[in-house]
Design a binder for these strands. Structure first.
Length: 501
RNA sequence: GGUCGGGUGGCCGAGUGGCUAGGCAGAGGUCUGCAAAACCUCGUACGGCGGUUCGAAUCCGCUCCCGACCUCCA
């Protein structure tokens, strides 16, 4: 709890020592998906990043309230926030479903995928359509405070007024208000209703064909995108809270407008720390369906895609994500995934070896003990430095070399203290599973695995007998046949281990 | 065009004013019946050109290239 956790704040563009508003507690809001289609992989990366952040905060002992919304109304297709079709409404029309059926379908799919990636569920997962009264109330408050105005049944946020009174419109995304004002677009519909081009809709009067609409003091309509996050973060975390996160592409306009709305409603800045994950690229380019530069999670698992040579398991992908800092772009390539797969296995195998180890030395501590102790401290220090998972992982891999050396007798464990060894075991257990959220897929402890392992021990014994007799054809036949079945035997000093490839 | 972020060894990726992560691949070695696995050693990289400095890949300037955002996007 007394850690010196530092977090990079997009608002100040600097790393800051993290101090929660209420000691011991953290309120964290992360922008969730708009459930109009299957989650795509970039989405998953953002949520995995924040999952690790959430897990680490829990590890530090904070009582965290993690809120991640589901947006199921208000998010429009096309050019601007008026005159375009709602994403959910469009899918509903195309698939001939109720909008809520669309939302339900993709919400379930999203949850399934989050589970596959082993992310912890948020504490509250509010839906935009479940908070229409709260949003209407917020619009009214914004109007009352003089930051919103009605025009023809729609309500707009007055960005110029906000910029003048707060001086911070554009601060989060590094934009100048003059530039925003100059960004007038010819193809903008309903531009005439706005006082300034940079103003945005917080309540939109529905066209007759619009599927989702609610009564409000201004019109039969629906809330603007951005507003749901402002209303729901306020409801569950208060007008001010600790962390607001999301993908980097949400900085503008979504987050910028959120700040504005919250300020307009409460005259205060909502989140103290803004965190943004970076993009996932595919072969050096942003994923884009229209260019064919895209891959769905399922395709990644099955290998059914022209971009990859084979399938990769969810935990390999999670490990792959951990190897890059959350604020860096991550380039997904087949070669990089292969490297990640091997690295992930090596780490898991070393973990298994470590847990079985007992001390062989005399308990006299030597230099080696100090090295391991420093390593253990280092891993935590890296996570305290803005959740630096790649560096923490690098240190764990240094431990992997040591573990394998001890195991194969290349290096003596002499000089390692009992408490140091057990701290190292704890470190692996805690970081790999509790914080990084990995699972050991090979040893996915079900009954079948137990049976298989028993069977394998028998086969290994029989091969060992053959080897003792120097019956090389027999022993090699066992080894080679298993290899064809994707089971690899690994001969070591202490006998033979096996793994599934 | 505007704004921002990058260009690191074969690939992916940390980091940072001097002690020069890590993973994967490659080379050599140890071990082994052979192999695999494992371990050890090795390649001394930071787009280009200038400048600041005792010293820069790390700071500054210029330049080239790439990406993101500016419009739906995590």
């Amino acid at each position: 709890m007394d850690s010196q956790l530092k977090i990079y704040n997009s608002l100040s563009k600097d790393k800051e020592v993290f101090t929660p508003l209420i000691p011991g507690r953290v309120g964290m809001y992360v922008c969730g998906p708009t459930v109009y289609n299957n989650v795509h992989l970039g989405n998953c990366r953002t949520f995995v990043s924040f999952d690790i952040i959430y897990r680490y905060l829990l590890h530090l002992g904070y009582k965290v309230r993690y809120v991640r919304n589901i947006t199921d109304v208000g998010h429009l297709e096309g050019d601007h926030d008026t005159g375009a079709e709602d994403k959910l409404g469009k899918m509903a029309r195309l698939e001939q479903l109720e909008p809520m059926e669309v939302a339900q379908k993709y919400t379930v799919g999203f949850h399934d995928m989050m589970k596959i990636f082993n992310t912890l569920p948020p504490n509250i997962e509010p839906r935009a359509t479940g908070h229409i009264p709260e949003q209407i109330e917020m619009v009214q408050t914004i109007i009352n405070n003089g930051y919103g105005y009605e025009a023809n049944g729609s309500v707009y946020f007055d960005t110029i007024k906000f910029a003048e009174s707060s001086g911070m419109y554009g601060k989060l995304s590094g934009r100048k208000i003059e530039d925003l004002m100059a960004e007038s677009r010819d193809n903008l519909k309903k531009q005439d209703e706005k006082r300034h081009p940079s103003d945005f809709a917080i309540w939109i009067k529905a066209d007759p064909e619009h599927l989702m609409r609610w009564n409000s003091p201004w019109s039969l309509g629906f809330p603007g995108w951005h507003l749901e996050c402002s209303a729901m973060s306020t409801k569950y975390l208060g007008t001010q809270f600790d962390i607001h996160g999301g993908g980097g592409d949400l900085k503008f306009p979504h987050h910028e407008n959120e700040v504005a709305q919250n300020f307009g409603a409460c005259n205060c800045n909502p989140a103290r720390t803004w965190m943004h994950g970076n993009m996932l690229l595919l072969n050096g380019k942003k994923m884009s369906k229209s260019d064919g530069n895209s891959i769905m999670p399922e395709e990644l698992f099955t290998g059914n895609s022209a971009h990859i040579s084979k399938g990769y398991s969810p935990m390999v992908i999670r490990f792959f994500m951990l190897q890059t800092h959350y604020r860096s772009t991550l380039d997904l390539t087949d070669e990089a995934l292969q490297a990640a797969e091997k690295g992930y296995r090596r780490l898991m195998e070393a973990y298994a070896s470590l847990q079985k180890m007992t001390l062989t030395g005399d308990g006299q501590r030597s230099e080696q003990d100090g090295e391991v102790a420093a390593l253990i401290k280092g891993v935590k220090a890296e996570m305290d430095d803005d959740f630096n998972t790649p560096k923490a992982l690098a240190l764990l891999f240094e431990a992997v070399s040591k573990i394998n050396s001890w195991k194969d007798g290349h290096q003596s464990m002499a000089g390692l203290g009992e408490s140091t060894l057990s701290a190292l075991k704890d470190l692996f257990q805690t970081f790999l599973f509790d914080i990084f959220g990995l699972k050991d897929e090979a040893a996915a402890g079900d009954n079948h695995f137990k049976t298989l392992d028993g069977l394998m021990q028998l086969v290994i014994d029989m091969r060992q007998d053959a080897r003792t007799r120097k019956d090389w054809p027999a022993s090699d036949k066992i080894r080679d046949t298993l290899k064809e079945l994707s089971i690899q035997l690994k001969d070591g000093k202490e006998g033979t281990a096996w793994t599934m490839e």
